[in-house]
């Protein structure tokens, strides 16, 4: 299980990286390698050139920019997991991160790599989908930003421009008000690719009325999806309301069927996890001070 031969460059700037990516048709970005390396080893992926972006300073780091938190693409997941900025301003992402892989894979795997790969069970992608984060690519001289909804188009298929390099993910900061989040998933083993995952964020006003409701489902269909739970807005989001709104929202959810989990199971599990995530988000929001 050895990769087919390839060349390798490790540029120190984004410009160099983009030039290298443009120089060969089958050039590919290598970041943490936690997904790409197995594919190389099994020769399922056969790039002729790997462009290692893990030492490009401008692609590493997490920072506040106005109403957003910018996570640069080559930021290691373990670093993001320890980030106080993320914990404070993007709590849903903070809840998603411990579910990504194992400690040793988080020590190399990057936030951008997880999103760029387009796996339908990727937790960071689900959080990005729910929060409508911006997925920003540099393609030659151009910069293109995608919404997750348009970026993920199939299992490990994305709108990423050929020869482009993911530079950052722009997460909106949590809104003002009483905000709560919930993230739940289920897999055969705790750290496996999930069969179903749900991420929720609710905002309540001071008198306990829900003013904004977001829910996303991952791992069930070909891509992570944001589903409409606006039915909770204007009410207290009690258990019954959550149950009804989730049932309605997931009515037409597409689900894949495979050896490990049937489609019917994935749908049922998604609903249960969605309710759990929403209940947790509600309880957390109502416990928080405005």
């Amino acid at each position: 299980m050895k990769p087919a031969p390839f060349s390798y460059v490790r540029p120190s700037s984004l410009d160099e990286a983009c030039a290298a990516l443009a120089s060969e048709e089958d050039a590919r970005v290598l970041a943490g390698g936690q997904t790409l390396m197995p594919m190389l080893a099994m020769r399922l992926s056969r790039p002729t050139l790997l462009v290692d972006i893990t030492r490009i300073a401008e692609l590493i780091g997490i920072e506040e920019q106005g109403s957003s938190i910018v996570v640069r693409a080559a930021t290691v997941q373990a670093y993001a997991l320890r980030s106080e900025l993320i914990a404070r301003e993007v709590p849903l992402l903070a809840k998603a991160l411990p579910n990504v892989g194992h400690p040793p894979t988080r020590n190399r795997g990057t936030v951008g790599g997880s999103v760029a790969h387009g796996d339908p069970s990727a937790e960071i992608s689900l959080a990005a989908t729910v929060l409508e984060a911006g997925i920003v690519f540099r393609d030659g001289e151009d910069e293109t930003s995608f919404l997750p909804e348009e970026f993920f188009i199939g299992p490990t298929v994305t709108m990423a421009p050929m020869g482009g390099c993911l530079t950052r993910i722009v997460f909106p900061k949590k809104p003002s008000g009483r905000v709560g989040t919930g993230f739940h998933e289920v897999a055969s083993r705790r750290s496996d690719y999930a069969f179903a995952s749900a991420a929720a964020q609710l905002v309540f006003d001071e008198d306990g009325t829900c003013s904004e409701a977001r829910l996303g489902i991952g791992s069930v269909g070909d891509v992570p999806v944001k589903v409409d739970v606006d039915g909770l807005v204007g009410g207290a989001a009690d258990d019954a309301a959550i149950r009804d709104v989730v049932a309605e929202a997931l009515r037409d959810l597409e689900a894949v069927d495979d050896l490990h989990a049937t489609a019917s199971y994935r749908r049922r599990a998604a609903a249960a996890l969605a309710e759990r995530a929403l209940r947790e988000a509600r309880d957390e929001a109502l416990e928080s001070r405005p």
């Binding site: 197995p38 099994m42 055969s188 083993r189 705790r190 750290s191 496996d192 690719y193 050896l259 490990h260």
Partner: peptide, 26 residues
């Protein structure tokens, strides 16, 4: 957890550790 499962075409579906699931410490 563990099974060497074949699809209808006679291909082994669980030929890597991503699909052949062995118990971890969890």
């Amino acid at each position: 957890l563990e099974e060497f499962a074949y699809d209808e075409g006679g291909q082994l579906m669980t030929q890597s550790f991503l699909d052949y699931l062995m118990p971890s410490s969890h």
